[in-house]
Simulated scan of single mutants.
Amino acid sequence: MATIKRYPFARHLRTAPTSHVLHLHAGRLRHDGAGLAFWFRPLSAVISEIPVDDRELPLVAHARTADFQDVAVQVTVSFRFEDPTLVAGRLDFAIDPDTGRWTGNPLEQVAHLLSELATGQVMDALAGMTVLEAVTSGGGALRRLVTEGLLADERLASTGIQVLGARIGSVRAEADMERFLQTPAREQAQGEADKSTFERRALAVERERAIAENELANRIELALREQQLVSQDGANARTRASEAAAAALIEANAAAERQGLLAEANAHSTRIVGEAEGAAEAARLAAYAGVDRDVLAALAMRELAGNLPSIGNLTVTPDLVTGALAGLVGSKGA
Rank of each mutant, 00 (worst) to 15 (best):
I4M: 11
F9T: 13
S19C: 12
V21R: 04
G27C: 12
G35V: 14
G35N: 13
L36E: 13
F38P: 08
A45F: 03
D53Q: 14
V60I: 03
A61F: 01
A61R: 02
A63F: 05
R64F: 07
D67S: 04
D67W: 03
Q69W: 01
T76M: 08
A88C: 10
R90G: 01
I95K: 10
G100C: 11
W102D: 08
T103H: 05
G104Q: 12
V110P: 07
A118L: 01
L126Y: 02
A127E: 05
V131S: 10
A134F: 06
G139C: 08
R144Q: 11
D153I: 05
D153K: 04
L164I: 10
I168V: 12
A175R: 06
D176W: 02
R179A: 10
A189I: 14
D194F: 00
D194Q: 15
F198H: 15
R200P: 07
A204W: 14
R207A: 14
R209W: 12
A210N: 09
I211G: 03
A212V: 08
I220L: 08
L222W: 00
A223P: 00
A223Q: 06
L224V: 05
R225T: 05
V230A: 10
G234I: 03
A237T: 02
R240C: 00
A244I: 01
I250G: 06
E251G: 04
A252M: 06
A256S: 09
L261G: 00
L262Y: 06
S269N: 06
R271Y: 04
A276V: 07
A283E: 12
R284E: 05
L296C: 10
A297H: 11
L299Y: 01
A300S: 13
R302M: 07
E303T: 09
L308K: 03
P309V: 04
G312Y: 00
T317Y: 10
P318L: 07
G327A: 15
G327M: 14
L328G: 08
V329S: 14
G330I: 07
A334S: 15
